[in-house]
Simulated assay, not measured.
Amino acid sequence: MTADAPASSTTTDSVLGGSLTLRQQRTGHRVGHDALLLAAFAPADRRRMVDLGAGVGSCGLAFLTRVPEAKGVLVEIAPELADLARDNAALNGLSARVEVVTGDVTRLGRPSGPERPQAGAADLVLTNPPFNDMAQHRISPDEARARAHMADGALLDEWVRAADRCLAARGMLCLIHRPQALAAILAALDGRFGAVEILPVHPRDDRPAVRLLVRAVKGRRTPPALLPGLILADADGTPTAAADAVLRQGEGLAQP
């Protein structure tokens, strides 16, 4: 165990129907559906993955659990979360296929940035970037939670640029974000990525989307496509079969 925090400050939780076990902080940002949906949206034919803003490793480790041939680099700026990501890789028998880097996403692929991941070496980048505009939302007093959820107006573009630097030609970027950010997402991708596929995620079939899953290919110019949406629950709150397949059975989502 690399994390110094006492056991009482963390919990150990099972996700994906028990196929993935995660230690995470008891308070602050907690693993939710977003990371698991993002991991499921990534194509299973990718072998060199980078997870930007990995937190405790939930998304990247979920992808590696589903795709046993793949290897990955998890990048996380908070040392305490990076330590938990290393613990979680070991806890799930994935240490041989995972490297955890403590570093700033915006410095990746630059001469002054971390040596790993190497520029142009990945064929898949996963990212669940900070969602909320600091000017529009109250900032959590918990520093780690605030870091996970808050962003200034330029951060999305910076993270897409970092993904571009990490990816080889025809590499794929997969991200999850709020629907309100659609224009900003397309603007950040423009000129770098194409063949954009957008999958809306709805809490119920009569509710607006609460998340957008987006994937795009480096260097392509094909126009965007809107995929059929994912409905998480029926009217009575029961998870739909499609949601259960992804969130409990660990299946891929809308694979190309």
Rank of each mutant, 00 (worst) to 15 (best):
T2V: 09
D4C: 12
D4E: 13
D4A: 14
A7Q: 14
A7G: 14
T10A: 15
T12D: 14
D13E: 14
S14I: 07
S14Q: 11
V15R: 01
V15I: 10
L16S: 06
G17I: 01
G18I: 04
S19V: 05
T21F: 03
T21M: 03
L22N: 01
L22Y: 06
R23P: 09
T27Y: 11
G28T: 12
V31I: 11
D34Y: 05
D34K: 09
D34T: 11
L36M: 11
L36E: 00
L37N: 02
A42D: 04
P43S: 11
R47K: 07
V50N: 01
L52W: 03
G53N: 04
A54V: 08
A54Q: 05
A54Y: 10
G55Y: 03
C59A: 15
L61D: 02
L64K: 00
T65L: 07
R66V: 07
P68K: 08
E69W: 08
V73I: 10
D83H: 13
A96E: 15
R97C: 11
V101K: 01
V101W: 00
G103R: 03
D104S: 14
V105Y: 07
L108S: 03
G109T: 08
S112R: 13
G113Q: 08
P114I: 06
E115F: 06
P117K: 03
A119P: 03
G120A: 12
G120I: 09
D123L: 04
L126D: 00
P130Q: 04
N132A: 02
A135C: 00
R138A: 05
I139E: 03
P141A: 09
E143F: 03
R145P: 00
R145M: 05
M150L: 00
A151D: 05
A162W: 01
R165H: 08
L167S: 04
L167Y: 05
M172L: 04
C174V: 05
C174S: 12
L175A: 02
H177Q: 09
Q180A: 09
A184N: 13
A184S: 14
A188M: 06
L189Q: 12
D190C: 11
G191C: 10
F193Q: 05
G194R: 12
A195P: 04
E197Q: 15
P200G: 14
D206T: 14
D206S: 12
D206F: 10
D206A: 12
R207N: 14
R207W: 12
V210H: 15
R211F: 11
R211S: 11
V214R: 03
V217A: 05
K218T: 11
R221Y: 13
R221E: 14
T222K: 13
T222V: 09
P223E: 15
P224K: 06
P224A: 12
L227T: 06
L227D: 14
P228D: 15
A233P: 06
D234Q: 10
D234W: 05
G237C: 04
A242L: 07
A245F: 03
A245K: 01
L247C: 06
Q249R: 10
E251W: 06
Q255T: 13
Q255P: 06
P256G: 08
